[in-house]
Design a protein around this nucleic acid. Structure first.
Lengths: 224, 224
DNA sequence: ACCTGAACACCGTTCAAGT
DNA sequence: ACCTGAACACCGTTCAAGT
C-alpha cells in the first residue's frame, strides 16, 4: 500500500540480491514479492514472468563481467590467462554458472572472451578454420571445466567414490597415483595444467581430421 | 484396486521410460502414479521420495553403460578412444547427462572409464601424481565437453550470437576464421580435435607448476 | 499506467487408516 | 507388508477489479 512506484530495475536488483544470498531456487515469485513489499502479481506487470525475469538477470550479470585483459609474454601464456580470467570472473558469481547453464546461455556468456582469444590465436600464427577450431576448443574446455567443477562442489559424498576405489591395491604398482586419485582434485592447478596442455597441443600440431601427427606421441616410446 | 503387488523394479522401469520419452521434468510423482495405475502415495513406500527415486534411476543407468574397450595402436590413440566411447555412450542417453549433472554425480559416472585411462596413461610412461593429473584432465575435459554440448543443443537462438558477431568485418583480415566462427560448431570433430590436442600436450610436456616448458611455444615464433 | 486479492491448476510429502 | 485418500504447504500464473 505505502509503496511508491515499483520499477523494473528495482525488481531485478532485489531478485539479483536474493539469488546471490540464497541461490536460484530461493527466487520464488512469492519470496521476491515479500522482499519487495508488493503483491506477487505486481511483479508480473514489470517483468512478464519468472522465465523472462531470469533471462534479464543473466543478461545483466553477463554484461557486468566486462572485458578480460590478457597477460603474459607468449600467445600461449596469454590464451591461458584469458581462460583463467574467465574462470575467476565466473567463480566470483557462483550461482550465475548454474543459471546460465540451465538457461542454455553458456555460449552467450563466452562471447566477450572469444574476441580476445581470436587475437591471441592469430598472434600464435594460426589462421582461418584452424584458428577457429583452436578458439572453440579453449572455449569449450574452459566452460566445461567450470561446469564440472561447480558440479563437484555441490556433489554429495558419493559411494563408491574415488577415495574408495583407489586404495593402494587397485592401481597396478603405482601407489603414488593411487594416493593422488584418492585425494580430492586441486581445481586451480588442474585447470591451469589442462588449459596449458591443450593450448600446447593446439599450437603445436595441425588440428585436422585424418592427420597422422594429431594422435602421435612425442614423449617416450612404449610397447604396443 | 485390481493391481497386483507393485515392485520397486516396476517403479524404476516406468520412471525410466517416462524420462526417456518426455524428459526428467515430466517425471512427477502424480504422472508416475497414473502411469503405474496406483495411488501416488504407494510410490513413496517403495522408493522413499522423488529425490531417491532419481538417485536410483541414475545409478542404474550408469551401471548399464558398461565397460569401454580402448582401441588404437598408441596409448594416445587409446586415450582418445576411451573419451570418444564415453561420449558415445552418454549421447545415447541424452537425458541422463542433465540428470547426472543436476544431482552432482558426474564423478560417479566417470569411474568406470577412469580405470581404463589409468592403464593407458601408464602405458604412455607417466607415473604417480603426473599420471593422476593427466587422467583427471581428460576426465574433466570429456565430461565438461558433454555438458557444454548438451547445453548448446537445448539453447535457444541467441542474440547477439556468434553468427551476428563474426561478420567479415569483425575479424581483423581473416575472413575464413570469421566464416568458421559464424557457422555452428561441428561437435564430433571439435571433440576429437580437442581431446587429441590435450592428450598430446599432456604426454609431451611435464605437467607441473612453475615449469617453463609448460606454457612455452613449440610452433612458430611470433612478435611479442 | 500500475497495483491488488482471489482463484486455478499444479507440485512433493505426511499421515492416519485400511487390508 | 503394502496400499489408500485426505490434507498440508507450497508453486507459477491468470484475471477481473480497483485506482
Amino acid at each position: 500500500m505505502a509503496r511508491s512506484s515499483l520499477t523494473r530495475e528495482e525488481v531485478l536488483d532485489t531478485a539479483g540480491a536474493l539469488v546471490k544470498r540464497h541461490g536460484p531456487q530461493a527466487l520464488t515469485m512469492r519470496a521476491l514479492a515479500a522482499e519487495l513489499g508488493t503483491a506477487v502479481t505486481s511483479i508480473y506487470w514489470h517483468v512478464g514472468n519468472r522465465e523472462s525475469l531470469l533471462d534479464a538477470l543473466v543478461e545483466r550479470t553477463v554484461q557486468e563481467m566486462g572485458i578480460l585483459r590478457p597477460a603474459g609474454r607468449t600467445p600461449a601464456a596469454r590464451i591461458v590467462s584469458v581462460a583463467r580470467g574467465l574462470r575467476r570472473e565466473l567463480r566470483a558469481r557462483p550461482h550465475l554458472i548454474a543459471m546460465v547453464h540451465e538457461r542454455g546461455l553458456t555460449e552467450r556468456m563466452f562471447l566477450p572472451a572469444q574476441q580476445a582469444l581470436v587475437h591471441e590465436v592469430h598472434a600464435a600464427g594460426l589462421r582461418g578454420a584452424r584458428a577457429a577450431a583452436a578458439v572453440r576448443a579453449v572455449q569449450f574446455q574452459t566452460v566445461g571445466f567450470l561446469l564440472v567443477e561447480r558440479n563437484r562442489e555441490r556433489s554429495p559424498v558419493q559411494s563408491p567414490g574415488e577415495g574408495d576405489l583407489w586404495t593402494a591395491s587397485t592401481a597396478d604398482d603405482d601407489p603414488a597415483l593411487a594416493r593422488a586419485l584418492a585425494r580430492p582434485a586441486d581445481p586451480d592447478r588442474l585447470f591451469a595444467d589442462s588449459v596449458r596442455a591443450l593450448v600446447e597441443g593446439l599450437l603445436a600440431g595441425p588440428v585436422q581430421q585424418g592427420s597422422r601427427r594429431g594422435t602421435g606421441m612425442r614423449g617416450r616410446e612404449t610397447a604396443e
